[in-house]
Computed example of a mutant assay.
Amino acid sequence: MDTLTEADGRVRSVLVAVALTVAGLLASQVTTLPAILVEPDLALDPSGVGRGLLVAFFILNFLGFAVAGAAYLAYTGLGWSFVDLRTPSLRDWKYAILGIVASFGFVIVVSVLATVADLSATDNQVVDYIGDDSTMALYLIVIAFLFNAPAEEFLWRNVIQKRLYAAFSRMGAVVVTSLVFAGVHFPVYAATAPSLDPTGLAGVLVSLLVVFGGSIVFGYVYVRTRNLVVPIVAHAGFNAIQFGFLYLTIEYAPEDLEAAMALVRLALPVG
Rank of each mutant, 00 (worst) to 15 (best):
E6L: 12
G9I: 03
G9V: 05
V16D: 11
L25G: 15
A27K: 05
S28I: 02
V30G: 08
T31Y: 00
L33Q: 12
A35W: 04
I36R: 05
L44W: 14
P46S: 10
R51T: 12
G52N: 08
F62S: 02
F62N: 04
P88L: 01
S89P: 11
S89A: 15
Y95D: 01
I97C: 07
L98K: 09
A114C: 05
L119C: 07
S134F: 11
T135I: 13
T135C: 14
L140D: 00
L146Q: 08
W156L: 15
S169C: 04
M171L: 12
G172I: 06
V174S: 00
V174A: 01
V175D: 11
T177M: 10
A182Q: 00
V184A: 03
H185Q: 06
A190P: 04
L196A: 11
L201H: 03
L205G: 13
V206D: 00
L209M: 06
S215C: 11
S215D: 09
F218V: 00
Y220N: 09
T225N: 02
N227T: 10
I232R: 02
I232N: 02
V233I: 08
V233Q: 00
A236K: 01
G237I: 00
I241W: 05
F245D: 06
L246S: 07
Y247K: 05
T249A: 09
A253R: 10
A253K: 09
E255L: 12
L266M: 08
G271S: 10
